[in-house]
């Protein structure tokens, strides 16, 4: 509304979110806390952690947020993070672009 001419463009906002997401998943994730998460810790403390069974995709190339074909920890986790961001963006973005209401101008095309 105000500052219509000088406001940050849609493209810049989109790019900003994407860059932050890629940096978080690709770089910062290496420094994330490695302690068990809330549920895992509670399961250990309450004595039902051992009821967990094997995951069917445990042998997948990116299982556990690492690229199994990359030796370096930092690269392996970073690559897995970037792949995850791209895959989620593709699936969720594709889904919502298909679902969106077209504006009349758009529908004419």
């Amino acid at each position: 509304m105000k500052n219509l001419s000088t406001r940050v463009s849609n493209r810049a906002v989109a790019l900003g979110i994407l860059v932050v997401a890629l940096l978080l998943a690709g770089v910062v994730s290496y420094y994330a806390a490695s302690a068990p998460d809330g549920l895992t810790k509670v399961a250990q403390d309450q004595g039902f952690a051992d009821t967990q069974t094997d995951h069917a995709t445990d042998d997948g190339p990116f299982a556990g947020y690492g690229a199994s074909f990359v030796d370096d920890d930092r690269l392996s986790g970073g690559l897995a993070g970037v792949v995850g961001v791209v895959v989620v963006l593709g699936l969720a973005g594709g889904l919502t672009m298909v679902l969106r209401r077209r504006t009349p101008e758009d529908a004419d095309v």
Binding site: N10, V13, A14, I17, L18, A21, V85, V86, V88, L89, G90, L91, A92, G93, G94, L95, T96, M97
Partner: peptide, 8 residues
Amino acid sequence: PLAGLVAA
């Protein structure tokens, strides 16, 4: 377009 980015 924002929705896909928010998911990412």
